[in-house]
């Protein structure tokens, strides 16, 4: 009995380590594709171009951005983007007035729905732009978020 519980204990401890080493072979290979230039781009056009391939975006009413009108803390601004555009391949979140505007780019497989939610940092009051790529076209929508305390620098 004692031996059994000992085994259980060691197993529980080691699963995490195994999961970490087994599950991560694939992502580290994909990592080479991390679009460094897009994330380091200093203006919106370059950032969008870097992830979507073109900066010619079409404003779309099918993209909904859920973000607070006024964010008290710019370090944590919840942003949810949902799109009803069929066949969305990627959703990018761009903060217009951040030093490097591109915050995140989500690549969706055919299984995924056009919905992502995360929290981002915002330096100051700015438009949050959602860029959705679908069927070779690039759509966008924006929403202004007022920031009372900036989240960049310290």
């Amino acid at each position: 009995m004692k031996r059994r519980s000992f085994l259980k204990g060691t197993l529980a401890g080691s699963t995490v380590a195994i999961a970490a080493s087994a599950g991560l072979l694939a992502p580290s290979q994909v990592l080479a594709a991390w679009p460094k230039a897009a994330f380091e781009a200093k203006n919106i056009q370059d950032a969008i171009k870097g992830v979507a391939g073109t900066d010619a975006t079409v404003a779309s009413a099918d993209i909904k951005i859920k973000a607070p009108d006024i964010a008290e803390n710019g370090a944590v601004v919840p942003v949810t983007v949902s799109s009803t555009i069929a066949g969305a391949e990627s959703i990018a979140i761009v903060i217009a007035k951040n030093g490097t505007p591109l915050a995140a780019n989500f690549k969706l497989s055919s299984l995924a729905k056009g919905y992502v939610s995360t929290r981002v940092k915002m330096g100051k009051t700015s438009d949050v732009i959602a860029v959705v790529k679908a069927g070779g076209k690039v759509y966008s929508a924006k929403k202004e978020v007022k920031v009372t305390i900036g989240g960049c620098g310290g």
Binding site: A75, T100, S109, K113
Partner: peptide, 22 residues
């Protein structure tokens, strides 16, 4: 089966939260 790959920059908040649907 892969559902989503998120590429993040430094502008994602500390202790990040992520939600998606599939």
């Amino acid at each position: 089966k892969q559902v989503l790959v998120a590429e993040w920059g430094g502008a994602v908040s500390k202790n990040p939260y992520l939600s998606f649907k599939y």
